[in-house]
Design a protein around this nucleic acid. Structure first.
Length: 277
DNA sequence: CGTGTCACCTGACAGC
DNA sequence: TGCTGTCAGGTGACAC
């Protein structure tokens, strides 16, 4: 569900309405969600604090409060953050509620309970959550073609799809945007990273950045659960070329889109358009 | 270093 | 209708 474009859309939807709001109370009802502290600390640390900022790295969100306090959230598969009026009935799998001083509530909903929360100083939450081990941000100006090529060259035997999904190498790509990026670049997902010639490395670098930027522009991909901070769905699902289109004709060449397994993940590919290296 | 499998949970869906 | 098996966008641990 939430990959970089979805998490960024959530960040952008929440930030203007959370900034400057003070917390009247915070209640965690699924204690296992909080990975690095006792459940009671969720309430005690957040009580009376004011939202200052929200930063995204990869698929993580870090909420900033005064006194160096941070709340780090990872939505994993089905997590949702929603800002709703307190009069709106709680969803079935609601796991925390943060009451704001304007009567709104920030709520966390997660059917599969895979989400993760960390609370504490920036240093501790980033170390404990793995935030500090994330690879570069693919949309950053600082992420160059040379950086990307070096990542491939250092892992020549890795399948390109597995490499792109590895958050330690590049942060934020998930199954949907990897399949779409590889299609746009015309590269077969089983290709070995070291076999991809420089012109195609360039195509892939561009394709990944373009597909993520397009995903953000369309406010994310809603297949099942994903919604932004206001409960609104995205629309990038209507732009997908291969993901979820197994058995249907490729939009470029009319041959049938295949669904295969790569690196243990369901993978969508047009065998005619995507070259194996 | 690389891949495959499992686990964490719940719900949707196919097949019987 | 309802049972069972399979699968799902993420990630880390583990075996080989």
């Amino acid at each position: 569900m939430p990959e970089l474009p979805e998490v960024e859309t959530i960040r952008r939807s929440l930030l203007p309405l959370l900034k400057g709001k003070k917390i009247k109370s915070a209640v965690l009802t699924h204690s296992k969600l909080l990975k690095n502290a006792e459940p009671g600390e969720f309430s005690s640390q957040l009580y009376g604090k004011t939202f200052q900022d929200i930063i995204r790295r990869g698929k993580y969100l870090m909420f900033y409060f005064e006194d160096q306090l941070r709340l780090l959230v990872h939505l994993r598969m089905t997590g949702q953050l929603r800002l709703e009026g307190s009069e709106i009935e709680l969803k079935k799998h609601n796991h925390f509620v943060i009451d704001l001083d304007d009567g709104q509530q920030l709520r966390f909903v997660d059917t599969r309970k895979f989400g993760m929360l960390y609370i504490g100083s920036e240093e501790s939450v980033s170390t404990q959550s793995g935030w500090h081990k994330l690879g570069p941000e693919p949309l950053s100006d600082k992420f160059s073609l040379e950086d990307f090529a070096a990542i491939l060259q250092k892992r020549p035997k890795r399948r390109i799809k597995a490499l792109l999904l590895d958050q330690h190498l590049i942060a934020g790509l998930g199954n949907i945007y990897v399949d779409e990026g590889l299609f746009r670049a015309g590269i077969h997902p089983q290709s070995l990273a070291g076999n991809i010639p420089p012109p195609k490395q360039h195509d892939l670098y561009q394709a990944i950045r373009a597909v993520l930027a397009d995903g953000i522009e369309h406010r994310g991909t809603t297949l099942n659960d994903y919604v932004d901070g206001f409960g609104q769905t995205g629309s990038f699902q209507f732009q997908l070329q291969v993901y979820g289109r197994a058995g249907q004709p490729c939009r470029e060449c009319e041959s049938t889109v295949q669904r295969i397994k790569v690196a243990g993940r369901s993978t969508h590919v047009c065998e005619a358009c995507q070259v194996m290296f």
